Computed example of a mutant assay.
Amino acid sequence: MSDPTTLDSYIDALAAALGLPIDPAWKPAVRANLEVSLKLARMVDEFPLPDETEPASVFRA
């Protein structure tokens, strides 16, 4: 989903769904941040974990 046209369509759809107006002047910055977020998400998703990996414990105060 790194194609600028696809990302712009995605941004427009999410903005409309959330009722969030995005100034056209800010769209390149929004797209750049989304590209970075998607890149980081890909890195996390592709990181191999062994089958015996356990989720972290939950601590409550």
Rank of each mutant, 00 (worst) to 15 (best):
A17F: 07
I22L: 13
T5R: 15
N33A: 15
W26Q: 13
E54T: 15
P4G: 08
A56E: 15
D3Y: 01
S2C: 06
P21S: 09
D12K: 13
A41T: 10
K39D: 15
Y10S: 04
D51K: 14
Y10V: 07
P21G: 11
M1V: 14
V30S: 05
S9R: 14
S9E: 10
F47W: 04
E52D: 15
A16R: 13
L49S: 14
A15G: 10
P28D: 08
P4H: 07
P48S: 08
Y10K: 09
M43C: 05
P21F: 02
S57Y: 02
V36M: 13
A29S: 10
V30Y: 03
P21W: 01
L38W: 04
P50Y: 12
F47C: 06
T5I: 06
M1R: 14
N33F: 01
V30G: 04
P24K: 14
E46K: 14
E46N: 14
D23I: 03
L34W: 01
A16Y: 01
K39Y: 09
G19V: 04
L7P: 00
T6A: 14
P50I: 07
M43G: 10
V58Q: 06
A15L: 02
V36N: 11
S37A: 15
R42Q: 14
L40K: 07
A25E: 06
N33W: 01
P21T: 07
I22R: 04
A15P: 03
A17Y: 09
S2M: 15
V44P: 04
P28E: 01
A15K: 01
M43I: 10
P55G: 11
L34N: 05
K39N: 10
S37V: 12
D3M: 02
P4E: 05
P28G: 09
A25N: 09
A17N: 13
E54R: 15
M43Y: 05
V44L: 12
G19S: 03
P55Q: 09
L34Q: 01
F47M: 11
S57V: 07
E46G: 07
A17S: 14
E35I: 03
R31V: 01
L40R: 14
M43N: 08
D3S: 09
A17K: 08
L14G: 13
P28L: 06
Y10W: 10
S2G: 12
D12I: 00
A13Q: 13
L18I: 05
V30N: 06
A17R: 12
D8K: 15
A41S: 12
A56P: 09
E35D: 11
